[in-house]
Amino acid sequence: MAEHVVQSPLPGVFYRSPSPDQPAFVEVGDTVSADQTIGLVEIMKQFAEIKSGAAGVLTVFSVENTGVLGPGDPVATIETD
């Protein structure tokens, strides 16, 4: 069983949905494609999308919504087969 750990490219605040009144991009247990957005990181009032980077099942988020990320911090784990 292979795992892919999604890392944050940038430091900032992590968001699981595009805006507070919208549903999350993905839920734990969802199947995702490699170029699918799984969250946003806010840095200096700009928002960058975090892509899954691998196809598979998202098994866990390593950071909670509005949690703080450092560069390279794990965001989520994707089970790839």
Partner: peptide, 14 residues
């Protein structure tokens, strides 16, 4: 609001 040694934080504007 900054000087030598200050941290430019990712949390606020640039």
């Amino acid at each position: 609001g900054f000087e030598v040694g200050s941290e430019i934080s990712p949390f606020y504007d640039s």
